[in-house]
Nucleic acid binder design. Sequence first.
DNA 1: GCTTGACCTGGAGTGCACTCCAGCACCTAG
DNA 2: CTAGGTGCTGGAGTGCACTCCAGGTCAAGC
Lengths: 138, 138
Amino acid sequence: MLIGELATKTGLSVDTLRYYEKIGLVPRPLRDAGGRRVYDTGILRWMRFLDRLKATGLAMRERLRYAELRDQPGLASVRERREMLENHREKVASDLVKLQETLELLDEKVDLYRRIESGDVPDPLAELANSVSKPRDA
Amino acid sequence: MLIGELATKTGLSVDTLRYYEKIGLVPRPLRDAGGRRVYDTGILRWMRFLDRLKATGLAMRERLRYAELRDQPGLASVRERREMLENHREKVASDLVKLQETLELLDEKVDLYRRIESGDVPDPLAELANSVSKPRDA
DNA sequence: GCTTGACCTGGAGTGCACTCCAGCACCTAG
DNA sequence: CTAGGTGCTGGAGTGCACTCCAGGTCAAGC
């Protein structure tokens, strides 16, 4: 697989892939006779995992550290990776709660706005009704 | 309330608060005789809501748009804000699913690492066991 | 009345994570 | 055999969201 195909499959740009390689986030692939990068399909698993970490807010610096640990043998590396994932797990769990709370808040606000739009204006926002063509008392 | 106190209460820096004011994210407060910003406690509600939007990934540009709409009267503004919140609600809901999936994935990985650490190495990762003092066949 | 600390302004600087570009090589189809 | 598409490198440029000055004003406590 050449870089263009990997870009398509991961949704990243070719430039981003080369950038990730430069900083050490993805391992350097083999090259063909013409010097072009040739990727093993196994890279996709790693890219998807990285994407998960990114999407859940793990900082680049941390992802980089994890990548670095990945090609270090020994239990110390395994242990540190486990600890990183455990820490991240806790962060994700608490984000989850925040997201759930925000979901409720958004639903309430949307509901409020809907009521304002339909002319059913709740008390503390009565000023907002100035421009609404609502009969004075019906 | 002066800016230092607001900074403490919101967890933002004084510089950030002034920056937010400059770009229009927070309304310009009154000034005292010495030209210092004096904030109404009501600002805290707005700051907390902004923080919610930020924490759930609403881009600065969008938060800015919302802030702008906030001091425009009329139903058009209410409608646009509602639509923004509805869109954001959907994004939050899908992030929620992603986070839940990632939580499971992290738990699996942590579990795997734990097993490696305890010497109970699963098959495809056997190379990692080289440095582990595990008896050859027990 | 003087020191100290919080505040003011305008503007420059920072770190992050890409993104773009010039100038070149290679390979395949027509 | 040549045109177009894809790839290469090193390095410059971008947008975002702050963050940090310098050089000054102001208010309250000792």
